[in-house]
Write a protein that binds this DNA or RNA. Structure first.
Lengths: 160, 160
DNA sequence: AATAAAAATGCATATTTTTGCATCGTAATT
DNA sequence: AATTACGATGCAAAAATATGCATTTTTATT
């Protein structure tokens, strides 16, 4: 168990247990724990561990591990969500989402969980979701919010 | 279907169908296709799409989409692979991997697929894999190769 | 043990990405 | 139609990350 291995171990642990926004922050944590390295080494370590940096819903970028990518709330809340999504249209001040049969509930839950300000609430049937935007929220803003929740929906709502 | 949406659409498509190593490259592709934007906009687009940049086995960094993260060969070849992995030890010039019952085959396949030079081949039982390194490959190198294949194994082999 | 070979790391720098600010265009509102 | 509000974008600069090269450290070999 040379020092490098334990360092890699710790890095993984830190990424798993903290929100790591950049290497400098991670570096600080390592140094606090007695690991004397530089950012350059850290960069290489992260590459070795195949840790990636991805944008999060909170508007920031975080490092994630391979495994984390699978467990990330964003991913978890909407597992292949886009698959069930069929179409989006607007009527009055409301949005109607069509889904594959049986998918509506699951998608609605994902939408609720996202807690986007723009979206006041949902009512789900079997293959339809009624989406109620908050007062004054434009259709564009609703689309935007949905895209944020389900990035892989982009193509499907391109022309709505 | 404003221009921005179709651009986002195209960006997703490009990332899905090409290996995108950086924003400049992506920018070039967009411009070739008639989208006149700057790298700054691209950065914002990628953030909106929650596209992340992660290190790949080929030693380079690539952009990936949420969905891709789930389908990435590295992930695909070893779906929760680390979970099945129990321990690693060496005997003679050979490596012995212990797995949970029934996992050996799956892990061995993942190892074979990785086609690491260091690893000549595997023989899998039910909960054990015999791993044959190539001539002259050190134990350290074998560990390294395994870590590369299964990043989430790092902790488990820390002290082997 | 001495020597050769390979790996790890720091330093400095290049590369890449993100962002504040100003501007422009478009859509909503009066 | 004029006015206001908001989103999109470019520009330039800051921030963050990756890497070539030189050096040190570790590991293997004779």
């Amino acid at each position: 168990m040379n020092d490098k291995n334990s360092r890699l171990y710790l890095i993984r642990q830190l990424i798993r247990e903290h929100d790591v926004y950049n290497q400098e922050q991670l570096l600080k944590m390592l140094i606090e724990r007695g690991y004397q390295v530089t950012q350059a080494t850290l960069s290489r370590d992260l590459k070795f561990l195949r840790a990636g940096k991805i944008p999060f819903r909170d508007g920031r970028y975080k490092y994630v591990l391979d495994e984390t990518a699978r467990l990330d709330p964003a991913t978890e809340a909407a597992p292949s969500a886009g698959d069930g999504f069929v179409s989006l249209e607007f009527a009055q001040q409301l949005a109607l989402i069509r889904t594959l049969p049986g998918y509506a509930n699951m998608l609605a839950i994902a939408i609720d969980r996202a807690r986007r300000y723009e979206l006041a609430g949902t009512i789900a049937g079997d293959d339809t979701i009624l989406l109620i935007p908050r007062d004054g929220v434009s259709r564009e803003a609703v689309k935007k919010a949905l895209q944020w929740i389900f990035p892989d929906i982009t193509e499907k709502i391109a022309k709505s």
